[in-house]
Design a protein around this nucleic acid. Structure first.
Lengths: 341, 341
DNA sequence: GTGAAAGCGCTAACAA
DNA sequence: TTGTTAGCGCTTTCAC
């Protein structure tokens, strides 16, 4: 920087002003400095800037596991949204490990100005932890809703309800749900609990009975577990003509188990998932789903986090909750077209 | 830090020594300092450390797109390998955009000590760019092999050859390959070129003829393109009893198109892919594949990058090439069992 | 084994 | 509009 200043015959401060696009710099000076920068190939040292300004220009994104397609696609969208604001993203995997998640929450990710956190183990019982957080934080999902923190999430209840209504609209009356939490409780705000709630609301609104035999617990949401639950459902002798998979990963396993058993989809059993991951387009039959608005979630979460960072943590605002718009994507597994739009 | 030093009645330097696990510190002093650290909740400022030491403790990983399952799984493994060494990972997406990739290569990712770079557009013709790189760099894949840089990659040729030999072992003699580069040239080191080379080697070694009608060009490697290529292959009237999909993403689309057309897999057509992404276990039928050794690639690449970082860029070493061990995973699409091991 | 002092590269505050 | 000064928090050097 000093070299640039000497070459352009200005002070450090003026170089700094040019680099930071400060408004009050004489155009001629700016050009001279810019030329010196180009000539010397000067690049600001971001550690120094970070030390001085207290900002690193890096945000953290903590997810359970990147190999789960939903989180990979979410990370993709978050990175894109961050890059559009000239921010970098450090990615952390908490591995669906409670201790690991508590550790992430306590300190954020190193070297970052703030954190987007999508936990998989922490829940309402950990709400108090949020009060001790001393860095800008935006939660993804509503697992720990009710604390002082901003949340960006999807319409879990309404989306699930719409999914089941979609099946009802096809004339299905015996609709199973696969993926309930083994310890389902209505007070909890886990995605599984909320989506089961939406499922029940849809049935009740349609005047249909709730049947415990149609609610299958699965944890974790992996395809093989979805397949196993479906095999058990088939073996149980319970009749059903539709399945609501609480996410697409389960749905893929469900399609697989139905196919093995010779069930025709959607003729015998219609299936709809949740998340609209890319892969659902290419199963056979292709998987209908609830598109939860991933891009909107990523964009909004990054925007909120940036606001929190720029306003400074010490300005306590009312916690905000944003739920992205969702929509039903009808594919072959509920009688829609399989070819891509 | 000063507060810690005052509380423990030592100097800054001693605190620094304790924090950095410096060996020559009196145990009693160490304990006293540690207690002060805990009491005050002191956490070192990493920007300051980075400024002073020239290291950030962050490495970069640049991939084309995280939403491609192969790269998501690779990133998962790289982050895990980095965390094991107490390093963070900044993830960049170059979006399969040549200019973007050149820009990444020119400067690395901001705030990082080094870069793991998996390009999708740069090729042998850009080899000279590697000479200008002034930061620790390890390339993933061999697209730009031949420069001064370390490479960690997979056995593209041998893996492909083994995949085709697997089909030959089932008695298949008319084996198609889907995913060749539209501009295939043997001199190129793109995965598509290398895998086609392995395909041809296997056929030639088995004394079978090469048939241009069996080599289908597809770009980019997306499931819908694999499905389209398969439909064209079926429509072309060329006979075939096996398909080698140059990656699993294509394979998923291929299975889909074969299913639509009423082809039985593996009875009529056996299919094998490449990459062994998680999803291949849950297609119907499940997809055989070449496991390219992703964990080994991630682990080795991080280890090499750390070596480069610690030795300092100015110690030029001979460029190294590491190819991970691969193996064939036989699933239902080639007559194996579909249930997970 | 520990301390004192210097300085990494930048920007905020103030001065001119 | 531009320059001067100070200092962010840490590690390094060298002295003790």
């Amino acid at each position: 920087m000093r070299d640039v200043a000497l070459l352009a015959r200005v002070s450090n401060k003026t170089v700094s002003n040019v680099v930071n696009a400060h408004p009050h710099v004489h155009p001629a000076t700016r050009a001279r400095v810019q030329q010196a920068i180009d000539e010397l190939g000067y690049r600001p040292n971001l550690s120094a800037r970070g030390l001085r300004s207290g900002r690193t220009g890096v945000i953290g994104l903590a997810v359970p596991e990147l190999r789960q397609p939903y989180f990979a696609e979410l990370a993709d969208a978050v990175i894109a949204a961050a890059e559009a604001r000239n921010l970098s993203v450090i990615l952390g995997q908490a591995g669906a490990d409670r201790a690991h998640e508590m550790n992430v929450l306590a300190h954020g990710l190193r070297q970052t100005d703030g954190l987007l956190f999508s936990p998989e183990r922490l829940g309402t019982e950990d709400r108090d932890l949020l009060h001790d957080v001393e860095y800008p934080l935006v939660m993804l999902g509503e697992r720990i809703f009710g604390g002082p923190t901003d949340h960006v999430t999807m319409h879990n209840v309404a989306g699930a309800r719409a999914a089941v209504e979609h099946l009802l609209g096809l004339g299905r009356r015996r609709i199973a749900v696969v993926g309930a939490h083994p310890d389902h409780r209505t007070g909890q705000l886990r995605p599984s609990d909320l989506r089961v709630q939406g499922y029940r609301e849809a049935l009740v609104a349609a005047g249909l009975p709730l049947d415990a035999g149609l609610e299958r617990a699965v944890a974790p949401w992996h395809p093989e577990n979805g397949a196993d639950a479906t095999r058990e459902l088939l073996a149980s002798g319970v009749e059903f003509d539709g399945i609501f998979a609480l996410n697409d990963t389960l749905g893929i396993g469900i399609l697989r188990a139905l196919g093995e058993a010779g069930c025709r989809v959607p003729d015998d059993v219609a299936v709809i998932g949740f998340d609209n991951i890319a892969n659902g387009q290419f199963t056979l039959p292709s998987l209908s789903s609830v598109d939860p608005g991933r891009e909107e979630i990523a964009e909004t979460a990054v925007a909120m986090l940036v606001e929190r960072i720029e306003s400074g943590t010490r300005t306590p605002q009312t916690p905000r909750l944003h739920k992205a718009a969702f929509h039903i994507v009808a594919r072959e597994s509920t009688g829609g077209s399989g070819r891509r739009a």
